[in-house]
């Protein structure tokens, strides 16, 4: 598994650096119109995480790399578990980096440039907000990756792109139906959280409570990610190269 993680790291390193620079530049550019560094953090996380997963799976298909990789001392199970671990590691590192970027950006816009929207909050509140944004954005990418990786593992990137969008649409439809059936308003993430907590607005609850919600959400997503990995292992065992 160490082999797989290292192999993924050296494969994706330069692409990660590039997408990091692009995401940060875009974030800095959009921070003022969005009026929030939390939104920038979420954007950086989603852009880099999803790009990294796509990139890794795309490299698998080029020059039969994944076929050759199986001639190294790796079982098919190790390949899949290693890939899930690589992506998870990238997600954790990107979340931490995104929070740091958000913080630097907040200090720059609020304290140095003194732009109105960014001056009103205390440092501790800002940090908590940024962490919550990073966790929730990572949850979104965990769900996305949990759905797309089994397809990419089984069919390869090129073929999987035919199925990813229809599958995502079906999953989203079922998820919204399920949320509606248990009485949750699924119009937006905010309204869903509000209806889940039984309050009138997010302002009613403290950031600590919101952090608790984000952690529960992360736990659920991690469980789904693990389930996705076990599905991928089964699919990869039957794959013919």
């Amino acid at each position: 598994m160490k082999t797989m993680i290292y192999s993924d790291y050296i494969t994706i390193r330069s692409a990660l650096i590039q997408s990091f620079i692009i995401a940060v530049a875009l974030g800095c550019f959009l921070a003022i119109p969005l009026g929030s560094t939390a939104a920038v953090v979420a954007m950086v996380v989603v852009i880099i995480d999803m790009g990294a997963t796509m990139n890794l799976c795309a490299y698998d298909d080029v020059n039969d790399w994944q076929r050759f990789r199986l001639t190294m001392p790796l079982s098919r199970r190790q390949v899949v578990v290693g890939r899930y671990m690589s992506v998870a590691l990238i997600m954790v590192c990107v979340a931490v980096l995104a929070v740091l970027i958000g913080l630097v950006l907040q200090l720059l816009l609020g304290n140095v440039l003194a732009i109105g929207d960014f001056t009103s909050l205390s440092l501790s509140t800002i940090v908590l907000e940024l962490v919550i944004a990073a966790i929730l954005a990572t949850c979104i990418t965990l769900i996305d990756t949990g759905i797309t990786l089994p397809l990419m593992v089984r069919f390869g990137m090129t073929k999987a792109t035919r199925f990813i969008m229809p599958v995502m649409a079906v999953v989203l439809l079922f998820a919204l139906q399920a949320l509606g059936s248990i009485g949750l308003d699924s119009g937006s993430l905010e309204s869903m959280v509000v209806s889940f907590l039984g309050v009138n607005s997010l302002a009613e609850i403290g950031l600590d409570a919101l952090m608790g919600c984000a952690l529960v959400c992360a736990l659920v997503c991690v469980v789904l990610y693990v389930i996705s990995s076990s599905i991928s292992i089964r699919l990869y065992q039957t794959k013919q190269f």
Binding site: R13, S14, A15, V62, N63, D64, W65, F68, R69, T71
Partner: peptide, 15 residues
């Protein structure tokens, strides 16, 4: 076991 296929299989991004 050492294996060589008919083309270089390593990803282009690796040094």
């Amino acid at each position: 076991v050492g294996v060589v296929f008919d083309s270089c299989s390593f990803p282009a991004s690796m040094r």
